[in-house]
Simulated scan of single mutants.
Amino acid sequence: MTDDQIVPPAPPGALDQALEMVRAGGPVVAILGVLSVVALAIVLVKLWQFAAARVGDRRTARRALALYRSGRSAEALGLLARSRNPVVHVLGCAIRGTLRRDLPEATVREEVARLAGDRLESLRAYLRPLEVIAGVAPLLGLFGTVLGMISAFQQLEQAGSQVNPAVLSGGIWEALLTTAVGLAVAIPVVAVLAWLERVVDRVTHEMETVVTQVFTSDLTAEPAANLAHAEPRHELPRLRPAAVMADR
């Protein structure tokens, strides 16, 4: 085979580059890689859970609440039964509780609060591990950098007067690699965690809003209704000065 027929080596793939980073960064980069895989798995599970629960559906609960307030409780419960939304489940429990005359309102409120707490706790599941990963990943990267710098300066000390700048620069590069990997893991986890928490907060607010309206009256519509059915007030006739003088 001639020199013209020599095939150049193929560029390293993504897997080879990842293995090279793990080799250069040591066990800290390997731990960060495991944390990134765990974080990705949790995010995928939460996305599937939110999609299955239809947490973005706000119309069903609002329509059912309007039906209930208009006296069409059966239609409201039928509409709520066809949805998996956690707000809808809690609202259905509140409506069914108010329809039962044998239960006091305090008991219904306690049961609704318990069910709401269970649904919200289910939505918050696995968010704490994401929070831990987002906080630990930069610290692990910094820890790996410190260890790498210590190793680089130990090699510099052992070299004595024959210092090779390549050895020192290579050690510093490998040390800074762990910090970069730690930040690369933490930044997207923090962003996704903030979005997931915002979704749970919106569900909590919507749940409190619709459930409270089951046990209260619509104060925005009450004044207009009162004015429409209010009887005109009859005022006492005022006596004119001339009539007063005539009586005298």
Rank of each mutant, 00 (worst) to 15 (best):
M1F: 09
P8M: 07
P11H: 09
P12S: 07
D16V: 11
Q17L: 15
Q17H: 14
A18Y: 02
E20K: 12
R23P: 06
A24S: 05
V28K: 03
A30N: 07
L35K: 00
S36W: 08
A39C: 01
A39S: 04
L40V: 00
L40K: 00
A41H: 15
I42P: 00
I42M: 05
V45H: 14
L47E: 13
L47M: 14
Q49T: 15
F50W: 05
A51K: 11
R54Y: 04
V55W: 12
D57K: 02
R59P: 02
T60H: 01
A61L: 08
R63P: 03
A64W: 06
L65P: 12
Y68H: 02
Y68A: 03
S70I: 05
R72W: 08
S73E: 12
S73P: 10
A74M: 10
L79M: 15
R82E: 13
S83E: 06
R84T: 13
N85Y: 11
N85C: 12
P86D: 12
V90L: 07
V90P: 04
L91Y: 11
L91K: 06
L91A: 13
G92I: 04
C93W: 00
G97M: 00
L99A: 15
L99V: 07
R101P: 10
D102T: 14
L103V: 10
P104I: 10
P104S: 05
E105Y: 02
A106E: 14
V108L: 00
E110T: 13
R114N: 13
L115I: 15
L115P: 06
D118Q: 13
L120P: 06
S122R: 13
L123S: 05
R124D: 13
L127M: 00
R128G: 08
L130C: 11
E131S: 07
A134C: 05
A137G: 10
L139C: 00
L139I: 03
L139V: 13
G141K: 07
G141T: 00
G144T: 02
T145V: 08
V146W: 03
G148N: 06
S151T: 02
F153E: 03
F153Y: 04
F153M: 08
Q154R: 12
E157L: 04
A159T: 11
A159K: 12
Q162R: 10
V163W: 01
N164R: 06
L168K: 09
G170W: 03
A175T: 06
L176W: 01
T178P: 05
T178H: 01
T179S: 14
T179M: 12
A180G: 14
A180E: 13
V185E: 00
V185C: 08
A186R: 02
W195I: 15
V199F: 09
V200Q: 10
D201H: 14
T204F: 03
E206W: 09
E208A: 05
E208N: 01
V210H: 01
V211P: 07
T212F: 04
Q213W: 02
S217H: 11
D218N: 14
L219S: 11
T220D: 15
T220N: 12
A221P: 00
P223I: 06
A225N: 11
N226P: 03
A228E: 13
A230V: 08
A230L: 10
R233M: 10
E235V: 04
L236C: 05
R238T: 15
R240M: 05
P241R: 15
V244C: 01
A246M: 09
